[in-house]
Design a protein around this nucleic acid. Structure first.
Lengths: 292, 292
DNA sequence: AGCTCTTATGAATCATTGA
DNA sequence: GTCAATGATTCATAAGAGC
């Protein structure tokens, strides 16, 4: 766990140009710890990915998910960020259909996280409110998988904060005066509880890191799942890399990663960003935590 | 809009004992403006009252939704509160299946609201976080339906929320003691200023209105949808009444309503509560707004 | 009034036992 | 072995009392 040993291990960050339907075939079986990706939504970004019609979306995605099932380790996890479009005033059902067919492929639909977008897209319609959430579908190969819950614990609410503050000023001194009173054990229970486990609802604002790119995938989203489902040295895969948010944060967290994208200009951009990040990581005194 | 005219119209609140699969047949076509209900969730235990096995859930519900489709007005809305259980470490898919089959019945799946439960059930498991959200599925008969968005506009920003919340608990009682003090006008000033349209994510804590009954959703949940999808004098239907939260709030908001439940003791309890509410409504100076 | 502290409670999951 | 029932476990809120 020392900083020196961590930096002695070589971390690879692999950017591949091409269609993941072809590139995934070259990856070995059971080699990836976490797949986290946000594929192009149906009929969106036509020019970049050729656009997939909602009716064809499931058939287009199933060969990809089949490859992902193959390359994922038995203890690994697949996080799929997706949200169905409104078509003719109705929510499309291709996401529901996809879940059912991926289960038929062998995936377990373990959980559905909700990403609550606090600053969602503006707009007003007569019979619809703004869409402020997206699905984060968790799939696994087995019921048992790696999950490092303590890595994503969050600070507790205000009442606990104030209570802890009070403990730290009065009760701690009282404890030091009464030796072995047993009260210290209670204090340590409270002190240990300064962080709480999250739920399956994630509150994150959308970020617009790069103005030239339309995707609003915030850095904290892949970061959260990488913390939760991988350790240092593990392998993260994003078959729809886009601007490379997942790869860059994986590199910064010292996870090996593979990213794929059909657009050469995106791949080149990500490579450049990675090079500058690598410079930071080569500094022996720099740590991920200090970059956080 | 005057209080006098509103109270001249007779509002009926109809509590019927029995299984809604049988009772719904007697309702006329196209007679209901809003169905809002929270049916018993699927349960592994076969023998338990109200429990339906996950594998049988869709077949059990489809005849009911067929009747609901018949009795709903063309401009009406059906709100279904539901959440799938975890079975063998995996999320069940009967809700997804139900959506697909209800569409085949003729329903439009217009929207999926998220109810974010701020105080969710406790628990800790090695490979799962606590479940903090439920689905609020919106179904319609037609693409055009009645929606009164301005009725559910919310104050902007947290500072306004906390201020309004305090008003609702302390200043409300003060207002009832000081008749016509003019303070109520200040409240409405706050409400009129800086309002924003909500999104499709609802933040509500679970409430337990009645101690003797375990499964109630909070009053504000049906209240929100009744505001959004009905006007005074419209008809609200809850085929799984339970403790009657929906009926009582509908009565208070001067909507006609029909509630059904197989348990006579629940029906009797709701009737008693309705009688006491009616007494309040008979007072000419009382208004829905002052009841909060 | 504001702040602190107490306490009640919530549509849950999982592992184990028994049929 | 499969299926069903039971018990233990769990924790962040918010309402309410108290100062």
């Amino acid at each position: 766990m020392s900083g020196r040993r961590r930096h002695n291990r070589k971390i690879t960050t692999d950017v591949r140009v091409g269609d993941c339907r072809e590139l995934l075939v070259s990856l070995p079986d059971n080699s990836v710890d976490l797949v986290v990706t946000s594929p192009p939504y149906a009929d969106q970004r036509k020019t970049m990915y050729g656009g997939v019609h909602p009716d064809q979306y499931v058939d287009w995605f199933l060969p990809i998910s089949e490859q992902l099932l193959r390359v994922l380790k038995p203890t690994g996890t697949f996080i799929l960020n997706i949200k169905e479009k409104v078509v003719n005033g109705e929510r499309s059902v291709y996401v529901l259909d996809l879940i059912l067919k991926m289960r038929a492929q062998g995936w377990l639909w373990t959980e559905e996280f909700i990403w609550h977008k606090k600053n969602c897209y503006p707009g007003k319609w007569p019979n619809r409110f703004r869409d402020a959430w997206e699905r984060l579908l968790q799939f696994n190969k087995n019921r048992k998988f790696h999950m490092y819950q303590e890595q994503v614990m969050v600070p507790m609410g205000d009442w606990a904060n104030s209570r802890l503050k009070r403990l730290s000023v009065t009760d701690k001194t009282r404890d030091s005066s009464k030796v072995g009173s047993g009260f210290g054990k209670n204090v340590s229970n409270w002190v240990d509880r300064d962080k709480a486990y999250p739920t399956n609802v994630l509150h994150l604002a959308t970020e617009c890191g790069n103005r030239s790119h339309s995707a609003t995938f915030p850095t904290s989203l892949p970061e959260w799942f990488i913390k939760l489902f991988t350790q240092e040295g593990d392998v993260v895969l994003d078959p729809f890399m886009g601007s490379g948010t997942t790869l860059i944060i994986a590199n910064r967290m010292r996870r090996n990663s593979i990213g794929m994208d059909t657009a050469p200009e995106y791949c080149e951009m990500v490579r450049k960003k990675l090079n500058s990040v690598d410079l930071y990581l080569c500094e022996p005194e720099m740590d991920y935590e200090s970059l956080g």
